[in-house]
Amino acid sequence: MTAMIEISNAEKTFVMHLQDGIELPVVRGVSFRVEPGECVVLSGPSGAGKSSILKMIFGNYRCDGGRIGIRHEGVQIDLAKAEPRQILSVRRATIGYVSQFLRAVPRVATSDVVAEPLIVNGVARAEARERAGQLLRRLNIPERLWALPPSTFSGGEQQRVNIARGFISDLPILLLDEPTASLDAANRAVVVELIEQKKRAGVAMAAIVHDDEIRHLIADRIVDVTSFAAAA
């Protein structure tokens, strides 16, 4: 009963009303759990629904059936049925998400983009910026870029800013969608180290990684998403 994530029979279908209501079943019967300190990697070919599953756990995609149990502040709640305010509270205190792409807000400096998750949880601005700086340095983002908004950065730099923003918090659950996709070997190694650190801190992680070598390094367990195929 200590699982941080406990999904049972979750399913998702897209109904495309603009294409004559065509139904696109994505996944069905999704069931797995993630314990504290464990990294579960979702595997399967593109289009199998891996990202959709992470988005369902983050509350970004709605879940059409089943249960998405999340341990939030000591109680398991069902995110599939939670109210918007509750999902927001879960995102503040429990679940962090490193998406494939950074959605940058215009005009906000890189160090503030990274520090924001700490600030909303009440960490003082100066301390949050300090910790943001440490992570950015570790991820090899040159200090002269910290005051600039990341929208003009290269793909790899934006991805590292995104990773810093995702890893800065001390949240008990972290969802990782291709965190190493556009990184060079040195930065991939940093991400592997960051993931190791989170494991030692007891963070439960669900990840998507295509790189076999990285998957081998971080995965404690692999969940094959093709077994949740919902082919109609």
Partner: peptide, 18 residues
Amino acid sequence: TGLTDQVLDDPREPYTQL
């Protein structure tokens, strides 16, 4: 109605999808 990113990333109604 719903969480903003949910409605915008996973719109359900025909008009919202449009």
